[in-house]
Design a protein around this nucleic acid. Structure first.
Length: 271
DNA sequence: AGATGTCCCTGGAAGC
DNA sequence: TGCTTCCAGGGACATC
């Protein structure tokens, strides 16, 4: 399932190649999470300027307006000079002078939304509530600790909410908490400054590492060049219920938090 | 206002 | 073997 590293790996895999491309045609398949918000044919003739990322959203900037792409939980993008015939799960396609950008998304939790600009109400609605970027300078230990002090939910759930820091999904939240020795159910406002700093470092480390390794292949992920990642080989706790902790040899446990599964080692992770 | 629960969707795995 | 049930997940929205 695409979290920040997968989205970033996807971006890196086609951003340079699509920059400058002229849109020829737009294909819309089955409805995605949200409507496109404009007449698809309206996009023909526009030029792709750049592809940026904010949290788990890809921002395809056009010479006029932009497309906000979200991969949901099963979405992946392909970009190539030409692609094989569309399958039943290919729900969005941008044919351009430099290749075809195709969204494949079996579960259709993904989205493609058009906004006239970043100041437009639709873009603001999707982007304004997002927290800081974990791989940028604005994410620092002291601000992180201060933000956690305002939250009484379990630390795992605060990480998932994405309004303190973006891009940490279910897999990396479990991994980062394991790396920093923090129990997922600990209230966010109970983290000491040193523990918040350790968690901060773990988040940066696990995300950077995942980007460097090409993202996680847990489930359906592959980059827009078709490369699959191999983070799964290195998961310390995620998906390992009942297996032995790689550090202490104790059993990895699973619990539910807000209808999401959390994996942790009760010996290594303390409240 | 912050916290919590519900829902969207579908393929694959597990259970009977 | 073939059916049903459960589960995965991000995030908007409703409800307390």
């Amino acid at each position: 399932m695409p979290e920040l590293p997968e989205v970033e790996v996807t971006r890196l895999s086609f951003a340079d190649r699509i920059a400058g491309a002229r849109v020829h045609a737009v294909f819309m398949g089955k409805p995605l999470r949200w409507p496109l918000g404009c007449e698809p044919a309206m996009l023909a003739g526009r030029q792709v300027r750049s592809v940026a990322r904010r949290g788990k959203y890809l921002l395809v900037h056009l010479d006029e307006g932009l497309l906000l792409l979200h991969l949901g939980m099963s979405g992946s993008l392909q970009f190539a000079p030409s692609l094989p015939p569309r399958g039943v799960h290919d729900h969005f396609e941008l044919s351009t002078s430099q290749g075809v950008l195709r969204l494949h998304d079996p579960r259709r939790f993904g989205a493609v939304v058009y906004a006239p600009s970043l100041d437009d109400a639709r873009a603001i609605k999707l982007l304004s509530g997002l927290g800081v970027e974990p791989l940028e300078a604005g994410f620092d230990p002291l601000h992180f600790h201060r933000a956690l002090k305002l939250r009484r939910s379990a630390i795992k759930q605060v990480l998932l909410m994405g309004d303190v820091v973006v891009g940490v999904g279910n897999i990396y939240a479990s991994e980062a908490l394991f790396m920093s020795g923090i129990h997922p159910a600990l209230r966010a406002d109970r983290l000491s400054k040193p523990r918040a700093a350790r968690l901060h470092a773990a988040i940066v480390s696990v995300l950077q590492r995942a980007v460097a390794l090409g993202g996680s292949t847990l489930r359906d992920f592959s980059s827009a060049e078709g490369q699959s990642g191999y983070f799964q080989l290195d998961a310390m706790v995620y998906g390992r219920e009942g297996q032995l902790c790689r550090v202490c040899g104790g059993p990895i446990k699973a619990m539910r938090q807000g209808q999401r599964s959390t994996f942790f080692c009760a010996a290594c992770q303390k409240k």
